[in-house]
Amino acid sequence: MSHHNPLVSVVIPSKNRPDLVIATLVSVIDQTYDNIEIIVVDDGSDMPLAPLLKDRFSDRVLCLRNDQSLGGAVARNRGAQSAHGDYITFLDDDDLWLPKKLEMQVDAFSKHGVDIGVVYCGFDFLCKEEIVPRQNKFHNDYDLSIAVLSGCPFGSPTPLIRKHYFDMVGGFDRELPSCQDWDLWIRLSKVCGFYPVKESLALYRVHGDQISTNLRKKIDGRKMVLAKHYDEIKNYPRVLSAHYSRIGSLCVLADEHVEARDFFSKALASNMFDGGSFVHLVLQFLCRPLEKWLIERFSVNTIDGIKVIH
């Protein structure tokens, strides 16, 4: 491994998506940065992936297999345990990278000190093979330890991470049903800095069969992240209130109205000036259909009829 051309480990968990994972792998192999190792973790697919990947990519891809599905967090951690790179990155089996992503991120690392542990970028949506641009947010401050408490600061297909820091914080939390990436960024923000490459260099595929559209897992994941990091978040009442309000809104979308009212009440107790939560509570009693419409209109991305909920 060269100091100027460090090895990058790419870990891709996959289950029962042979056609999509092939396209994902092609987008990795087509990177302009070529000192990479690719590790696919077959998380209990009905038909083992290894023969297909061997036939398509020869020895270019290492395929590990879990005989039964253990979930994305476990699959990613298993791939990380087999990784040899100075840097590690994770890509879902339905997402894609643009060709210069890794080159630009490795270059960014080379221009900054070792205190930078994560280089991220923007991403756009991919729906029915058409790119749908989105508004990306980039932070100018390298220290995201406070900002990351408010919400996930960037998309999961974008960051490149110094493996030293990934190992230091213990990888992904397998107990979380969702939001595992956000939880990881919170923990990484305590030990290293973050740097943005301010371009969209990844594509998040929208097809409905993904956790961002699974409301119950999303609600439970956000509740667990809040509980896990509560001692820090409670120091910022507006942030705490926003968390409660967002969970309440998700509960409305899931038609869990008793739970929704509980979280909107907690939001107001945390921040009495949270007018939005007060309006939600009023609408809970007066007009739930209007409340749900407002949430879907202003807080949910709908792309070609598919709701993308973060």
Rank of each mutant, 00 (worst) to 15 (best):
M1T: 10
S2W: 03
S2M: 10
H4S: 15
N5H: 15
P6T: 10
V10D: 04
I12T: 13
K15M: 12
N16R: 12
P18D: 06
D19Y: 09
I22S: 13
S27K: 05
T32V: 11
D34G: 13
V40S: 02
D42E: 10
D42G: 14
D46E: 14
A50D: 14
L52A: 07
K54V: 02
R56E: 09
F57R: 12
F57D: 06
F57H: 09
S58H: 13
L62A: 14
N66Y: 05
S69Y: 02
L70R: 14
G71V: 11
G72D: 02
V74L: 04
R76S: 04
R76Y: 05
N77I: 09
G79D: 06
G79S: 03
A83S: 15
H84M: 12
T89Y: 00
F90I: 06
D92P: 06
D94K: 07
L96W: 05
P99T: 11
P99Y: 04
K101E: 03
L102W: 08
Q105L: 13
V106A: 09
F109V: 12
F109S: 11
S110Y: 07
G113S: 14
D115G: 09
C121T: 14
G122L: 08
K128E: 14
K128A: 14
E129L: 05
E130V: 13
V132D: 01
P133C: 06
Q135V: 07
K137W: 02
N140D: 15
D141A: 15
D143S: 09
S145F: 01
V148G: 04
L149D: 10
G151P: 04
C152L: 11
C152D: 11
P153N: 05
P153V: 00
I161A: 02
R162K: 15
M168D: 00
G170S: 04
D173G: 03
R174D: 13
L176D: 02
S178D: 09
C179M: 09
Q180Y: 02
D181Y: 01
W182T: 03
D183S: 15
L188A: 11
K190D: 08
V191G: 01
F194S: 01
P196Y: 00
V197P: 08
V197Q: 12
E199T: 01
Y204W: 05
R205C: 07
V206R: 07
D209H: 14
D209S: 06
Q210F: 11
N214T: 01
N214D: 09
K217G: 15
D220K: 12
K223D: 01
L226W: 04
L226K: 03
Y230V: 00
I233Y: 00
K234I: 11
C251T: 01
A254N: 13
D255Y: 09
E256S: 12
A260E: 06
R261Y: 01
S265L: 03
S265H: 04
K266G: 01
K266R: 13
A267S: 15
L268M: 11
L268S: 03
N271P: 02
M272W: 00
G275F: 07
G275M: 10
G275H: 08
F278H: 04
H280D: 11
F285R: 12
F285P: 00
C287K: 04
R288I: 15
R288P: 02
R288K: 15
L294C: 07
I295W: 04
F298P: 00
N301G: 00
I303K: 03
D304E: 14
G305S: 10
I306M: 09
H310C: 05
